[in-house]
C-alpha cells in the first residue's frame, strides 16, 4: 500500500520519525505567576472574552475571539501601554483545523513586556484591519494577505507586497509546494510570450547542477566539446584534453596519457 500523503500539506518531511516518539512541550506558566501580566489580563478579561492565556518563554499569550481584535489592540495600546505592534502574521492550520492562527506581537516599552495576542480564524474569513491603530500593520497585513490570502477589512491598500501583484496562489500555505506550483514555474514564459510558447521554450531549469549533454551553447560538454551551435547526434568521440601550465606546476608532473594507466574497473 502506498503511504498516505496529505494533500493539504506538501512540505518536506523528515525522512524518519520514531513512531513512539512523543514531542515534549515548552513549559506554560500560569499568568498569575507574573504580576504585570496578571494585571493586564485582568483588564482584558473585564471587557472581552479570553479563550486561553498563559506565559510561555517569558511572554504572555492571549487567545481572543477574532471579531474583538481591533478593540483588544486598542485597549492594549491606549490603556495598557503596549505602544508598538512589532510583528503580526498568521500560521497555517488548514490541514488540521481548517483555519489560521493570526498573532499580534505587542511590545510595551514602559513595562518592558511583550504580549502575543492570538486568534483563530476559519478559512476564508477576513480579519479586521488594525492599520488605524498601528501604521506598521499596513505592511504586515499586506504581507499576511500576500503569503496566506487572509484579507483585512478596511485596509487602505490590500495588495500583494512581496510577490508580484498578478501572482496566483499563496506561497506560505502548507499546500503550496516549495518548488512553486505550475503557475509559478511558467510565470515568466506565460507573461512575456504567452501560454502557447511553453512547449517551444521549455521548462525553466531550476537545478543548477543539471548538465544537458545535447546543449552545445553552454559549457555543459566537458570532454565532448563541439563548435558552438553544432547539432549533436550523441555519437561524437570523447575529446582527450589535458590542461597543463606551460612552465609546469610545482610538485605536479606533466601528464603523459600514453604512459599512464587508465583504471576502468571501479572495483579495482
Amino acid at each position: 500500500m502506498r503511504a498516505y500523503k496529505a494533500k493539504g500539506d506538501v512540505q518536506a518531511k523528515p525522512y524518519y520519525t520514531d513512531r513512539y516518539w512523543v514531542a515534549p512541550q515548552v513549559a506554560k506558566f500560569d499568568v498569575e505567576s507574573d504580576e504585570v501580566f496578571a494585571k493586564d489580563l485582568e483588564v482584558i478579561k473585564s471587557k472581552f472574552d479570553v479563550l486561553e492565556a498563559f506565559i510561555q518563554v517569558e511572554q504572555m499569550t492571549v487567545f481572543i475571539k477574532p471579531e474583538d481584535n481591533y478593540r483588544v489592540l486598542e485597549l492594549l495600546k491606549n490603556e495598557l501601554e503596549y505602544t508598538q505592534l512589532s510583528e503580526m502574521s498568521a500560521i497555517d492550520f488548514l490541514e488540521t483545523r481548517d483555519g489560521f492562527e493570526v498573532f499580534y506581537q505587542m511590545l510595551s516599552m514602559n513595562k518592558r513586556k511583550r504580549v502575543r495576542i492570538k486568534m483563530f480564524i476559519k478559512n476564508g474569513v477576513a480579519v479586521n484591519s488594525v492599520e488605524k491603530l498601528f501604521r506598521s500593520a499596513d505592511w504586515s497585513e499586506r504581507e499576511m494577505f500576500d503569503m496566506f490570502g487572509i484579507e483585512a477589512n478596511d485596509h487602505p491598500f490590500m495588495k500583494r507586497i512581496l510577490m508580484p501583484y498578478d501572482w496566483q496562489g499563496y506561497p506560505l500555505l502548507k499546500s503550496y509546494p516549495l518548488q512553486g506550483d505550475e503557475f509559478a514555474s511558467w510565470y515568466e514564459v506565460d507573461k512575456i510570450f504567452g501560454k502557447e510558447a511553453r512547449e517551444e521554450i521549455g521548462p525553466e531549469i531550476r537545478d543548477t547542477a543539471t548538465i544537458d549533454r545535447y546543449d552545445s551553447e553552454r559549457f555543459a560538454r566537458l570532454g565532448h566539446e563541439v563548435p558552438k551551435g553544432t547539432k549533436i547526434t550523441g555519437n561524437e568521440p570523447k575529446v582527450t584534453q589535458s590542461y597543463q601550465e606551460d612552465g609546469g606546476v610545482f610538485l605536479i608532473k606533466k601528464l603523459d596519457r600514453d604512459n599512464s594507466k587508465v583504471i576502468d574497473d571501479p572495483q579495482r
Binding site: P14, Y15, Y16, T17, W21, A23, P24, Q25, V26, K28, Q56, V57, Q59, T61, S86, E87, S89, F103, Q105, L107, R114, R116
Partner: peptide, 25 residues
C-alpha cells in the same frame, strides 16, 4: 541527518541588530 526536534511551543525573541529589533518567531 534528522535534525533536532524542539518541544512543541512558540517563541518570539527580539535582539538588537545594528538596524533595529530583529525578531524571530
Amino acid at each position: 541527518t534528522q535534525g533536532m526536534r524542539p518541544p512543541v511551543g512558540e517563541v518570539y525573541i527580539a535582539t538588537e541588530s545594528p538596524k533595529g529589533e530583529l525578531g524571530y518567531f
